[in-house]
């Protein structure tokens, strides 16, 4: 039974795209067929983690939203990129990127798009590509389209940093997600300074937000140095951070 997993956050820079890419890779390693949609039309970024740039992208989500193509035409099979690290990979990964052409971004923001079409597209993908999981990399903040992603998700990971700018907004997001009755709602605390007691952080967050914590991810120098040039869990399969992400993946797919 296929699942839709959304990765969301109140503010930008919390690590949504990185987390999405890493969870995708981990699920693919389990042999699943995973689709990833970059719905951050304003500032698309996840394609970078898969090593793609303008030359590689022919059709994008924008094209689908403008009715220029079917959504499956915008899907790129990026399994080979993962297979560079894991030659025997059994799963498959499809990326539906947002356009990175400045003109197209400006156009779609100016003109808007039919949010419902987006939802249709998601369902279409699940069918056409026979996906086990559809990962939605949302853009930050609450608006119609992110609310929609949340509404149709089977699992939602809300990413936050232990930062004062995130606390208030995240509490609103959690509350709204609860009202939308998301079956599997998890908080992810990212970029936690290693000097904090992680158990204590988890307790505090769970208490404050009355929501289960899916993972506490430490601030990592290796991650910073990798700087989204690749997928962390593929490059550092034995790193403790990878183990934490594995647990998160298990919780999301349960």
């Amino acid at each position: 039974m296929s699942k839709i997993i959304s990765i969301h956050s109140f503010r930008g820079g919390t690590g949504k795209s990185n987390t999405t890419a890493n969870i995708t890779a981990l699920l693919a390693q389990r042999g699943l067929r995973v689709g990833v949609v970059d719905t951050d039309i304003q500032s698309p970024g996840i394609h970078v983690l898969f090593g793609l740039d303008e030359e590689h992208i022919s059709r994008s989500l924008n094209d689908y939203l403008w009715g220029k193509c079917e959504i499956k035409d915008a899907a790129m099979d990026v399994t080979s990129i993962l297979q560079q690290f894991k030659p025997g990979l059994k799963g498959q990964v499809f990326l539906i990127p947002s356009s990175i052409k400045a003109g197209e971004i400006a156009k779609i923001l100016r003109e808007g798009y039919d949010v419902g079409l987006l939802n249709d597209g998601f369902q279409q993908l699940l069918e056409d590509l026979q996906l086990d999981v559809l990962m939605i990399d949302t853009h930050p903040g609450l608006n119609e389209e992110t609310l929609l992603s949340i509404a149709i998700s089977d699992a939602l990971a809300i990413i936050m940093r232990p930062d004062n700018q995130d606390y208030q907004g995240t509490s609103v997001t959690v509350e709204v997600a609860r009202k939308l009755e998301v079956p599997n709602l998890l908080l992810v605390v990212n970029k936690v300074p290693p000097v904090f007691d992680f158990d204590h952080v988890q307790q505090k967050i769970e208490q404050t937000y009355n929501c289960r914590v899916g993972a506490i991810l430490p601030h990592s120098d290796e991650m910073m140095v990798l700087s989204s040039s690749g997928i962390f869990v593929l490059k550092y399969p034995d790193h403790p951070m990878t183990a934490r992400l594995e647990r998160l993946a298990s919780l999301l797919i349960a």
Partner: peptide
């Protein structure tokens, strides 16, 4: 918008992924 969305979402979950109409 939200109330509408919530209804559709609920219906969708009950029916198991039936598509909400694109009327937003």
């Amino acid at each position: 918008f939200f109330r509408d969305l919530k209804q559709k979402a609920r219906a969708m979950r009950e029916r198991g992924k039936a598509q909400p109409a694109s009327t937003n």
